[in-house]
Design a protein around this nucleic acid. Structure first.
Length: 487
DNA sequence: TGTTATT
């Protein structure tokens, strides 16, 4: 190692040749007995701003251990990987190198890039930030703009930090600004300066947060974002799916559908039963056992013969009538037959007051299932050999009169649970629970859109005032965008 | 009361 001074490395082709000719013994000794000065032999940590370097024009007979000494001259190496063909394992003549310190990378790049030629190569070594690091180099993404701001407005905001090659406001098909833009400078340094000065520096009128200024996504990042969006639309980020993956979640939906079919009489299932079924599955799968997601509601509808204490934790039909002006419960604790839903649709067929209602059946059914086959929730996906078709939820809002605002949702409800709860009333084209971006916690309100106003009205009639725990759902038409302006 | 958006 003593021969590998900076002077020699900076020098001639011959100097580098010495390195490669002698590396084997040298590196072995170094790696096992030596650490760079001041760096104890610990798991390497890299700086947050470390740069991944691309190393090109490497002779194919040099592997990592041969290369390491050459680059260790400039600092502690975090990772060094020679690129190899995925199938043949053949050396591709290049490598990726990350130093623990950003400074080391800059030093190495300055000292080595195009400065010498390794033995057997006819072009000089390449040492430069990997493509993956370039992050569009000079191109910025600007977010949280006012939607009224024009290209010129944005230019004015950014022009003092460098020369702007390109400035584009992102617009929807209708030409309306999406509140963000791309700004491309002629150099990375200018872009960096703009980030430092402008990111978070101000909040545009009407924007929900302060100005965002960052390097634009690379293609790779964009792909990842797309996938995440897709995943979100599939609902695989709900807690149920976190446990089993999207595939398992699909299986659960199937399971629930089967459950509903078996419970619903005449093809209809009460919303409460649907809700309960969804909720029970949710809890059963999350906790491993049926929990008590919903606190007891006033009254109590446990029919004779069903005495499991947890049964009372399911919302009873009676709890539905809280704010809906429905007839009061009868002495036996059952709602009057046909009385619960006043929307003209018989979700809830008349039945004997003494018979266990679909809700109870659903609940006890799931309870028994979960208790008897604790592993089945995980295995059931094997019954579905192909993944479900992906139907992205593009449409956010339905027509006027079809969109509901729902408040006082249980904290643990996500988009999926919200949809499950409103599915019995019609075709739900979207469901959205608002989530605090910082904490990822539900804000306990959301939106559901149907494809027709009748379903929305039916849902309001049945679900407004629906009691869950200590709270009652508030279900009403979503306020139109420009309504209720005091001016 | 439909959110932070990536040509």
């Amino acid at each position: 190692m003593a021969t590998l001074t900076n002077g020699q490395v900076d020098g001639t082709v011959h100097g580098v040749g010495v390195v490669s000719a002698s590396t084997n013994g040298l590196v072995n000794g170094l790696n096992h007995s030596h650490s760079p000065a001041g760096c104890p032999a610990t798991i390497p940590m890299k700086d947050h701003d470390a740069i991944k370097l691309f190393i090109g024009q490497i002779p194919r007979n040099l592997d990592e251990k041969d290369l390491r000494p050459l680059f260790e001259e400039f600092g502690k190496i975090y990772e060094l990987t020679v690129l190899k063909d995925r199938f043949t394992g053949m050396h591709k003549g290049c490598a990726f190198l990350t130093y623990c310190a950003r400074e080391s990378a800059l030093k190495a790049q300055n000292a080595l890039h195009e400065q010498k030629t390794l033995p057997g190569m006819n072009r000089p070594i390449q040492v430069k930030p990997a493509d993956s690091e370039s992050r569009g180099d000079r191109k910025l993404f600007v977010g949280m703009l006012n939607k009224q701001q024009s290209e010129d407005d944005v230019r004015r905001l950014f022009e003092s930090f460098g020369s702007i090659e390109e400035c584009t406001i992102l617009r929807g098909p209708d030409g309306n600004s999406k509140g963000c833009a791309f700004v491309k400078y002629s150099s990375h340094a200018e872009a960096q300066a703009a980030i430092g000065a402008l990111h978070g520096s101000q909040t545009m009128p009407g924007a929900s947060s302060s100005l965002v200024v960052k390097f634009a996504d690379t293609d790779k990042e964009r792909t990842i974002r797309r996938m995440q969006q897709m995943a979100g639309q599939m609902g695989i980020f709900n807690p149920m799916a976190l446990q089993f993956g999207a595939y398992g979640a699909y299986a659960q939906v199937q399971q629930q559908a089967a459950l509903m079919a078996s419970v619903g009489q005449g093809g209809y299932l009460s919303p409460m039963a649907a809700f309960a079924a969804a909720q029970m599955q949710h809890m059963a799968t999350i906790n491993g056992l049926p929990g008590a997601p919903l606190t007891p509601t006033s009254g109590g509808s446990t029919p004779p013969g069903i005495s499991a204490p947890t049964v009372t934790s399911i919302p009873s039909p009676i709890s539905v009538n809280g704010f809906t002006g429905m007839p009061p419960p009868q002495a036996n604790g059952q709602p009057p037959a046909e009385a619960v839903f006043t929307n003209g649709i018989h979700h809830y067929p008349a039945q004997s007051p003494t018979a266990a209602d679909p809700l109870q059946q659903a609940y006890t059914g799931v309870q028994q299932y979960a208790a008897a086959y604790p592993a089945a929730y995980g295995q059931i996906s094997q019954a579905f050999p192909h993944p479900p078709p992906i139907i992205p939820q593009q449409q956010r809002e339905g027509p006027e009169g079809c969109n509901l605002f729902i408040y006082h949702l249980p904290q643990e409800f996500g988009d999926g649970e919200l949809m499950q709860m409103f599915l019995p009333f019609g075709n739900v084209i979207s469901s959205k629970v608002f989530v605090d971006r910082a904490t990822n916690q539900s804000k306990c309100f959301g939106f559901v859109s149907f494809d027709n106003p009748g379903s929305a009205q039916a849902a309001i009639q049945s679900m407004n005032g629906f009691q869950i725990g200590m709270k009652r759902l508030k279900v009403q038409l979503k306020r139109p965008k420009d309504a209720n302006r005091p001016y």
